[in-house]
Amino acid sequence: MDELTEKKWDRAAPSFDLMASYGPEKRWAPFKRELFANMGEGRILFLAVGTGLDVQFFPAGRSILGIDISQKMLDQASTRVSAYEGDISVQHMDVHQMPFEDGHFDQVFTSCTFCSVPDPVVGLQALRRVMKPGGDLYMFEHTGSRYFPFNLMMNLITPVSRKLGPELNRTTVENVQAAGFELKKVQHVYLDVVKTIHATA
């Protein structure tokens, strides 16, 4: 377990919803609902659960295992998780050290996750290992920007933001490809900063 990352998100857990639960979720709701509508009938891995804000967008009746590196985040998520009308369980786990056998999951979903995974390409490779060949990876992520002045600002603020939470200048689309996934679709939600990504293992 990456203890630095775990402690960072444990510290963030009590106040996380204050920042993230209203404005961002209301703003992103149509895009998240559209992304999570791709959840199918097979085994689904979802990371990172956080305080469970995304659960409201999951279609009912799916079989989902959610993981998160922060137990305190998962504790906050318990009410939202238990309200889900389907088969969902959560586990305290580091994406770098998942115990699942190769090819265990049909689909993997992430939500604002790979701004925080310390080694994103290794993390994505770990996801690919536990996915069936050809399985779907769907991501809702914020990344850096290619455009000035947004790229300059995000590069400047990232050394501070990574101490408290996410990095703001990740190259997640490129990381997905570097991890061996085949990119299917990138949809920009806000500038080239917030986006949905669909790739296959």
Partner: peptide
Amino acid sequence: TVLSIPLALLAAGMFGAMEVLVPVMT
């Protein structure tokens, strides 16, 4: 730019994350 960061964080909870941070910092 530095002064805009706390202002953006104050507003982010109400109106959105990157959609507030990016224009307010600009």
